[in-house]
């Protein structure tokens, strides 16, 4: 028996097929919840409005019911160029559709990341989290169609404290994990404070986030990592925000 066969044999003889301790009923319950969440995210505003979204394994956020579909233009927030602090290249506005859509609070942030004709966008939405009066908003990763229709893919919100406390808040990773997806969600989140740069660390490598200030509160800085810079769903080992002078916030 060669050494690789020895390794193979050892891996097999140490199997413990007699017990796994897995709770199948619990697995299916949680699986249904994940499925519901995906379905909600995939069907846009109408479904999102009536569904509970669990983030971070604890509290349940309920997105506010939508108002009637609002035709008309959707302003797009300017992207901050991390090197200059000025507006980036994707400041655009589109003409709105007449179909139902999520109801962002403030401007929708365009990223320039494309999935065919659709563009990855981020927007703040109102949420209710039971027993957490300090959490009233969440940050959604969605896609905008050429007609301006929004499809929410993923929503993150705080599950404790206040959504405006200084510092980093919940970070959203692609909900599909590392399973290949046609619409991978870039790693994203928001920081409250005068951040001019946000830099993540992964495997000892520094990755720079793109930033956009929320139109309703410039202290709230939305950030995301372009998929070419950070593969979606790759967990960050660390993340820091720096002010315009390079000081750590």
């Amino acid at each position: 028996m060669n050494e690789v066969d020895e390794l193979r044999r050892a891996m097999r003889v140490t199997e413990r097929a007699d017990r796994t301790g897995l709770d199948l009923a619990g697995i299916m319950r949680e699986g249904r919840r994940v499925r519901r969440r995906r379905r909600v995210a995939g069907t846009g505003a109408v479904a999102v409005a009536v569904a509970a979204v669990v983030i971070g394994g604890g509290a349940v956020a309920r997105i506010h019911p939508p108002e009637p579909p609002a035709p008309g233009p959707v302003a797009t927030a300017p992207v901050v160029d991390p090197t200059t602090g000025g507006p980036g290249p994707t400041a655009t506005a589109d003409s709105g559709p007449v179909e139902p859509r999520p109801r962002p609070v403030g401007a929708v942030v365009g990223t320039g990341i494309r999935y065919g004709d659709d563009e990855r966008v981020f927007y703040v939405v109102p949420v209710d989290v039971p027993e957490l009066p300090g959490v009233t908003i969440g940050l959604a990763a969605g896609r905008r169609s050429p007609t301006g229709g929004l499809t929410t893919d993923y929503l993150v919100n705080d599950v404790a404290g206040s959504d405006r406390r200084p510092g980093f808040h919940e970070i959203g990773y692609d909900p599909q994990g590392r399973v290949p997806s046609v619409t991978p969600v870039p790693t994203f989140g928001y920081f409250v404070g005068p951040a001019a740069r946000i830099v993540g660390t992964v495997d000892g490598r520094h990755v720079e986030a793109r930033l956009a200030r929320w139109s309703e509160d410039p202290q709230l800085v939305i950030f995301w990592f372009d998929p070419g810079v950070l593969t979606p769903a790759t967990p960050l080992d660390g993340i820091v925000a720096r002010d315009a002078r390079g000081g750590r916030l």
């Binding site: 699986g31 994940v34 499925r35 995906r38």
Partner: peptide, 12 residues
Amino acid sequence: AQTALVRTYASW
């Protein structure tokens, strides 16, 4: 394993 099975069931 539980996490993997949850996601598997979600996409079943």
